[in-house]
Computed example of a mutant assay.
Amino acid sequence: MSTLKNKFDFKYLNTTHQFHLVDPSPWPLLASWGAFMFVTGGVLYMHKMIGGWGLFINGFILILFVMFVWWRDIVREATYEEHHTFVVQRGLRLGMILFIVSEVMFFFAFFWAFFHSSLAPVYNIGSSWPPHAILTMNTYTIPLTNTFILLSSGATVTWAHHAIILNAKRHTIIALLYTLFLAALFTYFQGLEYVSAPFNISDGIYGSCFYMATGFHGFHVFVGTIALAVSFIRIVLNHSTNTHHFGFESAIWYWHFVDVVWLFLFINIYWWGNLEPYNVPASSLM
Rank of each mutant, 00 (worst) to 15 (best):
G191C: 05
G126S: 12
I252D: 06
V101W: 08
M67T: 11
L21T: 08
L135G: 04
A184E: 07
F108L: 13
L237I: 04
H256K: 01
N138T: 11
Q18G: 14
S102L: 12
M137V: 13
F181V: 13
N138F: 08
T243M: 08
A251Y: 01
L119Q: 05
A227K: 00
G95D: 05
T158S: 12
I63W: 02
A184R: 15
G126D: 07
Y12A: 15
F181C: 07
V258A: 06
I125Y: 02
I57F: 02
G54T: 09
I173A: 01
V22F: 08
F99S: 07
P130W: 02
N268S: 15
V75W: 10
R170A: 12
I235W: 00
K5C: 01
P28L: 13
T40Q: 06
H83Y: 14
E249A: 14
L150V: 06
A227S: 04
H83I: 06
N200Q: 07
H245L: 06
G95I: 09
V22C: 10
P281M: 07
S196L: 08
G191H: 09
L166P: 00
T172V: 09
T15L: 04
N200W: 03
V223D: 02
T79Q: 14
D203Y: 00
H161F: 11
H217Y: 03
H171S: 14
L21M: 09
T156W: 01
E249S: 14
